[in-house]
């Protein structure tokens, strides 16, 4: 019973101290929420299982890539010299012997799944467990909650993908014995950033649904539905449209053919999956010179050779901004919805 008495004396003093600390900078509270969310993620079985799957598949694809490259290298000594000039190192991410898809394909497949898994129950789980009202009755601005959740999830995916990318690079250097050039290194860094942006899109879609739908299952299913739509059905629909639209009998001039082809391409680019795959191929295969249709006139006289890094980046700039814009739009909608939403539990 001695402690409460002491406490009473110290109460006034402490309060002013606390207030001062808070007035100085409010960020400690924000970082507290981020830290807690981050810990929750890395402790949850859902994320652990997903991480294991991603790591295993990446190792698998790395193995097939390495064996393919080694087979080619061992055929002759000259190849090694040629290899240095043709960005062989980047092939670690894109080559495969056909048994397992390459690293890039795995990322484009599992990345969205990770994003959705990180985001789909961000808000509604708190709501259903009754922790949201408790959290909101603490002196915390409302947007801290959703911002912190977003940031924590983004941190998890950034850490994971950079770690994976560097592991693949390290193993590549160790096993093949060819170090990456500085340009290749930059390309890989950009590729990893792109991955994070792509996951960010799906993460925000998940958060958006988690704000909108009260049940975690509904929001998970709707996020997965969107993902499946873009990865399977969207291509089918575009194929279907292009069959009629690009009918050779109805096309009369080259110009018309080019514009029609471009329309179809732009339709394809509405899908975040397509934007991602376009950008990754450009980044990781420097030989890609253009993402649109090229006429014979344009290609005649062109010397086939790798594009410099700056040019590749320029080529995918619209794709990258588009992807980030889509991410931000999702987050903005989720943010506004959450700020306006009633905190009521029912």
């Amino acid at each position: 019973m001695k402690i409460p008495k002491k406490l009473k004396f110290r109460k006034g003093e402490e309060e002013t101290k606390n207030e001062k600390a808070e007035q100085k900078n409010t960020s400690p509270v924000f970082s507290v929420i981020v830290r807690k969310e981050f810990t929750d993620f890395i402790k949850s079985w859902r994320i652990i299982i997903l991480l294991i799957i991603i790591i295993l598949t990446c190792m698998g694809s790395l193995y097939t890539a390495i064996t393919t490259i080694q087979d080619t290298l061992s055929r002759s000594e000259d190849v090694k010299e040629i290899a240095k000039d043709t960005n062989l190192f980047l092939q670690l991410f894109t080559t495969s012997d056909g048994t397992l898809p390459p690293f890039v394909t795995f990322v484009s497949f599992l990345g969205p799944l990770l994003g959705i898994a990180l985001g789909f129950d961000a808000v509604n789980a708190e709501r259903n467990k009754g922790t949201l009202t408790r959290l909101m009755s603490q002196p915390v601005p409302r947007d801290y909650v959703i911002n912190a959740k977003f940031l924590a999830a983004l941190l998890v995916s950034t850490t994971l993908f950079f770690a994976l990318g560097f592991i693949v690079m390290a193993l590549g250097i160790l096993i093949i014995g060819i170090p990456p050039t500085f340009e290749e290194f930059l390309r890989i860094l950009c590729f990893l950033c792109l991955c994070v942006a792509y996951i960010g899109f799906w993460l925000n879609l998940g958060i958006l649904f988690s704000v909108r739908f009260k049940q975690a299952a509904t929001s998970a299913l709707s996020s997965i539905a969107v993902w499946i739509f873009f990865s399977v059905f969207y291509n089918m629909i575009i194929d279907f449209i292009s069959k009629g639209y690009l009918n050779p009998e109805s096309i009369t001039s080259t110009d018309e053919a080019v514009t029609k082809q471009e329309t179809i391409l732009n339709l394809m680019r509405l899908s975040p999956n397509y934007l991602f795959s376009e950008s990754t191929t450009t980044l990781l295969s420097p030989s890609v010179r253009s993402l649109g249709p090229l006429t014979m006139e344009q290609t005649v006289g062109a010397i086939t050779g790798p594009l410099p890094f700056g040019q590749s980046l320029l080529l995918i700039w619209p794709q990258l901004t588009g992807l980030i814009a889509a991410t931000l739009i999702c987050f903005a909608i989720a943010y506004v919805l959450f700020m306006r939403q009633e905190i009521r539990t029912n």
């Binding site: 400690p28 467990k129 009754g130 922790t131 408790r134 603490q138």
Partner: peptide, 26 residues
């Protein structure tokens, strides 16, 4: 404020839950 359908973070102990609330209050 003690809400009527209060919930806690289930994977944390009671003690940790209290510490979290305390840290939110700086």
């Amino acid at each position: 404020y003690l809400p009527d359908d209060l919930g806690f973070y289930q994977n944390m102990t009671g003690f940790e839950n209290l510490l979290y609330t305390a840290s939110l209050n700086a």
